Computed example of a mutant assay.
Amino acid sequence: LYLNSFNNTAFASADAVRDRIRTDVSAAIWHGGSLQSSAGVRLLLPEQLEREKVQELAGLSIDRLDVECTRYQPAPELLTAAFDEKPVDEILVSHLLKSNCLVTGQPDWGSVQISYSGPQIDQAGLLQYIVSFRNHNEFHEQCVERIYMDVLARCKPTKLAVYARYTRRGGLDINPWRTSHPQSPPANVRTARQ
Score class of each variant (00 low, 15 high):
residue 175 N to F: 05
residue 114 I to G: 01
residue 96 L to M: 09
residue 6 F to Y: 15
residue 33 G to F: 15
residue 38 S to K: 15
residue 3 L to G: 09
residue 134 R to P: 15
residue 177 W to V: 01
residue 68 E to K: 09
residue 71 R to C: 15
residue 140 H to A: 06
residue 168 R to N: 06
residue 59 G to C: 04
residue 94 S to V: 02
residue 71 R to F: 05
residue 147 I to M: 14
residue 156 K to D: 06
residue 33 G to D: 07
residue 3 L to I: 12
residue 95 H to V: 03
residue 112 V to T: 13
residue 27 A to G: 09
residue 22 R to Y: 03
residue 81 A to C: 03
residue 176 P to M: 03
residue 167 T to H: 04
residue 56 E to W: 05
residue 108 D to N: 06
residue 143 C to F: 07
residue 138 E to M: 14
residue 165 R to K: 13
residue 77 E to S: 14
residue 120 Q to Y: 01
residue 37 S to E: 12
residue 164 A to K: 05
residue 120 Q to E: 14
residue 118 G to R: 07
residue 188 N to T: 15
residue 132 S to P: 03
residue 11 F to L: 09
residue 194 Q to F: 01
residue 168 R to M: 09
residue 114 I to C: 00
residue 151 V to W: 07
residue 162 V to K: 02
residue 31 H to D: 13
residue 3 L to R: 12
residue 183 Q to R: 15
residue 112 V to H: 00
residue 157 P to T: 10
residue 97 L to F: 05
residue 143 C to S: 13
residue 178 R to V: 10
residue 17 V to R: 04
residue 119 P to T: 02
residue 67 V to T: 14
residue 175 N to C: 06
residue 58 A to K: 09
residue 38 S to Y: 08
residue 57 L to P: 00
residue 58 A to N: 01
residue 134 R to K: 08
residue 155 C to L: 01
residue 93 V to R: 01
residue 179 T to I: 11
residue 141 E to P: 03
residue 138 E to A: 13
residue 34 S to T: 11
residue 86 K to Y: 02
residue 5 S to H: 10
residue 22 R to F: 01
residue 83 F to E: 11
residue 24 D to C: 06
residue 109 W to S: 02
residue 112 V to Q: 00
residue 112 V to G: 02
residue 107 P to G: 04
residue 178 R to A: 01
residue 51 R to W: 13
residue 6 F to L: 15
residue 156 K to V: 04
residue 97 L to N: 07
residue 147 I to Y: 09
residue 43 L to W: 11
residue 118 G to K: 05
residue 111 S to N: 05
residue 172 L to C: 12
residue 115 S to V: 11
residue 165 R to L: 01
residue 63 D to N: 03
residue 156 K to M: 11
residue 19 D to T: 04
residue 16 A to F: 02
residue 81 A to P: 00
residue 150 D to N: 06
residue 78 L to V: 12
residue 70 T to M: 09
residue 116 Y to H: 03
residue 34 S to K: 12
residue 54 V to D: 06
residue 22 R to C: 10
residue 156 K to I: 02
residue 94 S to Y: 10
residue 14 A to I: 05
residue 19 D to N: 14
residue 48 Q to C: 07
residue 142 Q to W: 03
residue 139 F to C: 05
residue 173 D to K: 08
residue 187 A to P: 06
residue 127 L to T: 10
residue 14 A to T: 13
residue 59 G to R: 00
residue 171 G to W: 03
residue 115 S to F: 14
residue 51 R to T: 11
residue 100 N to R: 15
residue 20 R to N: 11
residue 143 C to K: 15
residue 167 T to L: 13
residue 158 T to V: 14
residue 183 Q to I: 14
residue 112 V to N: 00
residue 95 H to M: 03
residue 161 A to I: 08
residue 16 A to E: 13
residue 83 F to D: 08
residue 109 W to I: 03
residue 186 P to L: 00
residue 48 Q to T: 04
residue 142 Q to E: 07
residue 137 N to G: 09
residue 46 P to R: 08
residue 162 V to L: 08
residue 170 G to E: 07
residue 90 E to P: 06
residue 62 I to G: 02
residue 117 S to K: 05
residue 57 L to C: 00
residue 166 Y to S: 01
residue 36 Q to I: 15
residue 156 K to S: 09
residue 3 L to V: 11
residue 178 R to E: 00
residue 38 S to N: 13
